[in-house]
Simulated assay, not measured.
Amino acid sequence: MDYRKSAQEVLDNIGGAGNVVSAAHCATRLRLVIADNAKVDKEALENIDGAKGVFEAQGQLQIIFGTGTVNKVYEEFIALSGVEAATKAEVKEAAAQQQNIFMRAIKVLGDVFVPIIPAIVASGLLLGIMSALNFMASNGFIALDTNNFIYKIADLVSGTSFGILQILIGYSAAKAFGANPYLGAVVGGAFINSSLQSAYTVASEGVQTMVTVIPGLYSFEWVGYQGHVIPIVIACAILAFLEKCLHKIVPEMFDLFVTPLVSVFVTVLVTLVAVGPIFVWAENAILGLIQTLLTLPFGIGSFIVGLFYAPTVVTGIHQMYTAIDLGQLAQTV
């Protein structure tokens, strides 16, 4: 195979070097961010010697060459085009800048929730094992000593991630938005503070306290955000905006004290009073719709989800499923 010839044909069929924003490669694919996709001839790219497929995903034009081959084609491509070599992370960032606001929002969801998955797995798998053991014990299949120290520690660990889920999301979301992640953790913790009525008790006890904002006109529920994830993400977006603004206007000698205090306080205030109730309602509506869809008879809902899953993965919007899944877990665990 003539790697230089293949690289030149790639360059010719994507509109030339001037149409390349960024270029990198992974184990099997040449990953390009293109300025003007109208100049790309996909059919010609698919017929290049060594090319095994061409598709667009997450704002990138990806040409599959295979392990080993892609490295050599990439080296020739960089040499011919004069484009500066980039890492996969840099290409992803460049691709994100080319995407519309909807796709950027989906990317943010991925940046927030994907890093949390190992923590959820750590507790979630153990929680599943504990539930199975408890079920078998309650139905007489096995004898289970719940006073055993191993059982007690396993039970403790199995619920930890879900008990502090809002703190984990606060940390991750603040980091994704460019805010101080520790302030994000504080914001997340504030919404599950023991001073607030637990959201898990509302169904059985009702809302115990309403806090008045405008007498006779508006009040909000003094209830925690257990079981909710999207309001925490929105709160951290507000936190990031406030923190960045304050860093610009607060004198450096006061910045360390003023910025964290004001940004956290205002974020929690705005979220509890106004933003939070709106997104709690929206999240409940979305999760209710998904739950209704999944419980349709004869597996119709599962068929619909399966039908759309592959296209959403190709387009990159599958990251939204992680947010939905975590929302369902937060409400039911």
Rank of each mutant, 00 (worst) to 15 (best):
A105D: 07
I106F: 12
K107L: 13
V108D: 01
V108P: 08
L109S: 03
L109N: 06
L109D: 03
G110W: 03
D111Q: 07
D111M: 09
V112G: 01
V112M: 10
V112A: 02
F113E: 07
F113Q: 04
V114L: 08
V114Y: 14
P115G: 12
P115T: 11
P115V: 08
I116P: 13
I117A: 07
I117W: 00
I117P: 03
I117H: 05
P118M: 06
A119K: 11
I120A: 12
V121E: 10
V121K: 08
V121Y: 15
S123R: 14
S123C: 06
G124P: 12
G124S: 10
G124Y: 06
G124R: 11
L125Y: 15
L126Q: 02
G128R: 12
G128F: 03
G128P: 13
G128H: 06
G128D: 02
I129F: 07
M130Y: 12
M130Q: 10
S131Y: 06
S131L: 09
S131K: 14
A132F: 11
A132C: 03
A132N: 11
L133W: 04
L133M: 10
L133A: 11
N134H: 12
F135C: 01
M136V: 09
M136Y: 09
S138F: 11
S138G: 01
N139I: 00
N139T: 10
G140E: 03
G140S: 07
F141K: 04
I142S: 00
I142F: 00
A143R: 13
A143F: 10
D145E: 09
D145M: 00
D145C: 00
D145G: 01
T146N: 04
T146Y: 09
T146P: 13
N147D: 09
N147E: 12
N147K: 10
N148P: 08
N148Y: 06
N148R: 11
F149V: 11
F149L: 12
F149Y: 13
